[in-house]
Amino acid sequence: MSKRDELIEKYAADIKEKFGEDPDMDLLTKVAVGLGPAIYNLDASKVSGSSEKELETVKNNFLVKKLGLSDSPSLMDAINSVIDKYGRSDKNKHRAVIYYMLAKHFNKEAVYK
């Protein structure tokens, strides 16, 4: 099994455990591939739920630029909702899982088709 496949399995386990959902493996794989080499970097592969700067980056670079959403307070509400479900105190919030959950939340799976 490749390193990427191992990481995707770890992300799938997080989605099942933290969110109580069976992940769409095709979408999860595409989100992970879309993150490129960042998934292999310990720091870049995680999202700090306590860093406003980090959450702004998720909003601007992923929700606005990648998913094409208009900037509004609902974007940050969605990010915070996903972070809360993931577990704010959990230090290992994987970027791929957060992006996957946000894509599902906004029904933007087609961006990855």
Rank of each mutant, 00 (worst) to 15 (best):
M1T: 12
S2W: 07
K3V: 13
D5W: 00
D5R: 11
E6I: 13
L7N: 09
E9P: 00
Y11D: 06
A12V: 08
A13Y: 08
A13F: 04
D14F: 03
K16V: 05
K16Q: 11
E17D: 11
E17M: 13
E17N: 13
K18W: 05
K18M: 02
K18A: 09
F19A: 01
G20H: 01
E21R: 12
E21C: 05
P23W: 01
P23M: 05
D24I: 10
D26I: 14
L27E: 10
L27A: 06
L28Q: 10
T29I: 01
K30G: 07
V31F: 00
A32V: 03
V33C: 03
G36D: 06
P37R: 09
P37T: 15
P37A: 11
I39L: 12
I39A: 08
Y40Q: 03
N41W: 02
L42K: 09
D43Q: 12
D43I: 13
A44W: 05
S45N: 09
S45D: 03
S45V: 00
K46F: 08
S48A: 11
G49S: 04
G49W: 01
G49L: 09
G49Q: 04
S50C: 00
S50L: 09
E52V: 10
E52D: 11
E54R: 00
E54M: 07
E54T: 13
T57P: 00
T57L: 13
T57C: 07
V58F: 03
V58N: 03
K59E: 11
K59V: 09
K59Q: 09
F62C: 08
L63D: 05
K65F: 07
K65V: 03
K65G: 00
L67Q: 13
G68F: 02
L69S: 00
D71V: 12
D71I: 07
S72N: 14
P73V: 02
S74Q: 15
L75C: 03
M76S: 09
A78Q: 06
A78G: 01
I79E: 11
N80H: 12
N80L: 09
N80M: 04
S81T: 15
I83E: 05
D84P: 01
K85C: 14
K85W: 11
Y86H: 06
Y86K: 05
G87V: 06
S89N: 13
S89T: 10
S89F: 09
S89H: 15
D90K: 10
K91S: 10
N92V: 03
N92Y: 10
H94Q: 06
H94A: 02
H94M: 07
H94Y: 13
R95D: 07
A96S: 09
A96Y: 02
A96Q: 03
A96W: 04
V97G: 02
Y99Q: 15
Y99T: 02
Y99E: 15
Y100G: 06
Y100C: 03
L102I: 04
L102A: 05
H105F: 12
F106H: 14
F106Y: 15
N107Y: 12
K108A: 04
E109K: 12
V111L: 02
Y112L: 10
K113N: 14
